[in-house]
Amino acid sequence: MKANKPELIVDGKRLDGRGFGDLRSIKITANVLDNADGSAYIEWGGNKILAAVYGPKEVFPKHFADPTKARVKCRYSMAPFSSLEEHGRSGPNRRAIEISKVTTNVFENVIMLSEFPGSEIDVFIEVLQGDGGTRAAGITAASVALANAGIHMKDLVYAVSAGKIGEDIVIDLNKIEDNYSDCDMPMAIAPRNNDVLLLQMDGGLSKEDLKKAVSMVIEAGKKISSVQKEALKKVYTGIAEKYESNGV
């Protein structure tokens, strides 16, 4: 427990006025980059993240090619100006390498790798502004970008973090809550049958707390999923509406 810890819950409300199970506002726009095969931009609370997908394409360097399945390469990176502290220089650091790896593992489990043997799928997650829960927001955006690129996959993954402040289980922690909470647990879930693809934990939870946290994540996930689907459909319905209203 850290010294001079701020009071995170006042009168049963969190610092930004949310209840324990409330998400921050989420806005996703798909197909924002012309050069990428698929892309998405997410604004999740204070997070602003751009995700781009390239592929399937030729593997580089060539000796990494696997003749039986595709190779997924994720790159998570935070812009040097994304945060108030720590990120003084650009390029991968210890934290970014770890997040890139766990993100790769998430998408290796949903992309149908055997359909594109000997190819490579690149996923880039670029955090422009970070405010807690960037890896969860990054995975949510990247999965929209993958669908936008037309990559064959089993499901549209979402991710969100749960945590514990004092005795209360809360969802979608922001930067301050993340720094001073007793536990922070990002989860990535495939909503089709609630397969858990990522579960990391910083801190500790009891068995009952964990069960409660997981059920809250799944409840919040329904909302995240619907935002993702809305964003993907809007790319196409936007063009269609233009003509239907004209009666042509």
Partner: peptide, 21 residues
Amino acid sequence: YSKVMGLYDKQNNSIIPLEGT
């Protein structure tokens, strides 16, 4: 389940992918 984003035609049960290689 569908594995792509596509147009689903209920009459002849076909899916036309909207994106992809």
